[in-house]
């Protein structure tokens, strides 16, 4: 059986038992197993249906109406009018570019920085317990003060960052959040900071999960630390890396309140993220139908991007499986 077939829907025929099928051994489930699976999933289904799927569907349906948030609303189905109108909204699409830079930059930097930190936290240095807790500090800061604190740190004339640079003899008058060239990088740093704990913890747990035997075997084959990282650590982490990067990307693309408090989209619109438009349209203009169309567009774009990413990741997975088996 070849790799290519694994994307087919499961057919009952020859799956069972074949060694080559082990990656998805349980997919050849008979009916009893399927029921077992359903029993495992069922408890999560009810709250999900009532509290998530229903409101989501409702939100998506609104995209095809002219709904407004007035008292006793009365709205009509307007087909794809909202989408046609949105296609001509240059502000929204401009912010898309900024949103992409922001989301890709934050996600990648987070990943690289968190991978490094997780490795360090996993390499048996002293005070491991303490450093692990310190690494989680961004999680412990209540979100209401995060932006306020960073604004103070970045303050051009009363902030510790410039004071520190000044003490090193570097320029001490950089207006981090208000200079047209530094504003976006400065908020990206805050974005990375905010997301570090969760990426680090996730990867740290992933590292813990790698059987020690794999490293030992590689070490016995004479592989150095660097070689082992590429040959053992990364491949073993792959499913977790895939999961956390895709989620981080979604969250980053979706966030706007942190950046909004830091810069209000300024200076001159350099940090205006697309979700701000959805918010303004939905709540400030109360055109919930049009706003829902923006939401649907965001979903389509992000899901398409992720589909490409996840597919390529999964393909690599399969190739690897094949190699191992071949």
């Amino acid at each position: 059986m070849t790799v290519a077939t694994s994307s087919r829907p499961p057919t009952p025929v020859p799956r069972q038992g074949g060694r080559s099928d082990r990656r998805r051994a349980p997919s050849g489930l008979d009916r009893a197993r399927r029921r077992e699976a359903a029993a495992l999933v069922m408890p999560s289904l009810l709250p999900i249906l009532v509290l998530s799927v229903a409101p989501l569907l409702m939100g998506v349906l609104l995209a095809f109406t002219d709904a407004e948030l007035v008292r006793r609303p009365d709205y009509q189905f307007v087909g794809v009018d909202n989408f046609v109108r949105l296609a001509g909204n240059s502000f929204f699409w401009d912010s898309f570019r900024i949103g992409m830079i922001w989301a890709v930059a934050v996600t990648l930097l987070q990943l690289v920085a968190a991978l490094g930190l997780a490795q360090l936290l996993n390499s048996g240095l002293r005070l491991q317990g303490l450093t692990r807790v310190l690494a989680l500090i961004p999680w412990a800061m209540p979100p209401v003060v995060v932006a306020i604190m960073w604004k103070m740190i970045y303050s051009p004339n009363a902030g510790p960052l410039n004071a520190f640079l000044g003490s090193l003899g570097l320029p001490d008058d950089i207006n981090w959040l208000a200079d047209f060239s530094t504003a976006l990088p400065a908020v990206i740093v805050v974005g990375v900071w905010v997301g570090m704990p969760q990426t680090t913890v996730t990867l740290l747990a992933g590292l813990q999960q790698i059987p020690a035997e794999l490293h030992e075997a590689a070490a016995m084959d004479g592989a150095g630390a660097w070689r082992r990282f590429w040959a053992v650590t990364l491949p073993s982490l792959r499913p977790i890396l895939t999961s956390i990067t895709s989620l981080n990307f979604i969250w980053n693309f979706n966030s706007f309140s942190l950046v909004y408090v830091l810069t209000e989209g300024g200076p001159g619109g350099r940090t205006m993220l697309p979700m701000l438009f959805t918010y303004l349209e939905a709540f400030k203009n109360r055109n919930i139908g049009y706003a829902a169309a923006m939401g649907v567009v965001l979903v389509v774009v992000v899901v398409l991007l992720l589909a490409v990413y996840l597919r390529s990741q999964l393909r690599d997975d399969r190739v690897e499986t094949k190699k191992k088996e071949g």
Binding site: E264, G265, G266, G268, G269, M272
Partner: peptide, 17 residues
């Protein structure tokens, strides 16, 4: 509200800079 956040504030900031 929308004009203020997405048009006017960025435009004034560009002018003042």
């Amino acid at each position: 509200a929308q004009w203020k956040d997405t048009v006017a504030t960025p435009a004034y900031q560009r002018y003042l800079a």
